[in-house]
Structures are given as C-alpha cells and as structure tokens.
C-alpha cells in the first residue's frame, strides 16, 4: 500500500476536528458548587483541546506548504496486522465466556500460525508451554483471578 503524500494534512484536519469535539464536550463540565479561586473542571481539558487544534492546524499547514518531510511509512503488511488485531479483540470478547485456559492456547496458536503463515505442531509446542507456564504463575502462585469461563 503506497502512502498518500498529504497524509499529515489529512491527519491534521482529523485531529483538529477531534480537538474541537473535545473542546465542546469539556464545556459541559461545570461543577455545581463554586469554590473561591477554583479553576473549573472544564479548564484544563479545554486548554489542551485548544492546544491540540492549534498544533494539528500547524501540522496540516506545514505539510500543505511542503515544509515538512512526507511520511514514508509502508503499509505492505497491514493485512496481517489487521487480522492479528481482529484476533486480539475476539480473544478479549470471548475470554469471559470461554475462559483463559481454553482461549489463551487457541489465541496463541492462531497468532503463531499468522506469523509463520503455516500450521506446524512443532511451532505450537513451545507456545503452549509458555501459555500454561504464564497461567500457572499468575493463577496458581500469584492468585490473580483469571477468567475461568465455563470451566468454572
């Protein structure tokens, strides 16, 4: 995937709009009781939102006038990243229902398969060993209540 020359301008506009939304939202944070000398709960978020708008506008302008280097990032492998991120969210979504002991090995093996682009048992063995070791340390030794899922 080739990079768009004016990507920083686009990002600048998006961040400016985000800053504007934050500024408006922060305007609602007015406390019911006023204390003498108090700066309201809205002041700092609004100050930061204004700073974000100014800086993002500056970034967009500098990019449009070609005063900054264009971003040269390559997104050639973004498909694999998107798939991995998707599996991460799926792992998080099913974790409370299915439980760590089942979901974690499945997730780890899937990520290994994505990384190597093949499914080989020999690749999975060390991964599974690590997953069970992590589970043992956290759940049994450190008593972290990892989600048990339907195994109870």
């Amino acid at each position: 995937m080739k990079n768009f020359r004016y990507i920083n301008s686009v990002l600048g506009v998006c961040l400016f709009a985000f800053g504007f939304l934050i500024f408006r939202e922060a305007g609602n944070y007015v406390p019911e009781i006023e204390i003498d000398g108090q700066v309201g709960a809205h002041a700092f978020p609004q100050l930061f939102a204004v700073a974000l708008m100014v800086l993002s506008a500056l970034m967009a302008l500098l990019d449009l006038k070609k005063l900054t280097k264009p971003t040269t990032a390559s997104f050639a492998g973004i498909g694999a990243v998107a798939v991995t991120a998707g599996f991460c969210y799926a792992f998080w979504y099913f974790l409370p229902e299915v439980g760590f002991l089942i979901m974690a090995p499945l997730f780890a093996c899937t990520v290994t398969a994505i990384t190597t682009r093949r499914f080989r048992i020999m690749d999975m063995i060390p991964v599974l060993l690590v997953v069970f070791a992590v589970y043992f340390v956290f759940a049994n030794l450190l008593k972290v209540p990892v989600p048990a899922g339907f195994l109870g």
Partner: peptide
C-alpha cells in the same frame, strides 16, 4: 518471533 509474539501477547 513465532514463539515470542504469542508469548508477549499472553
């Protein structure tokens, strides 16, 4: 990396 990546994620 095939071992390290899932290990770090877990």
């Amino acid at each position: 990396n095939r071992v390290l990546v899932p290990m770090i994620l877990i």
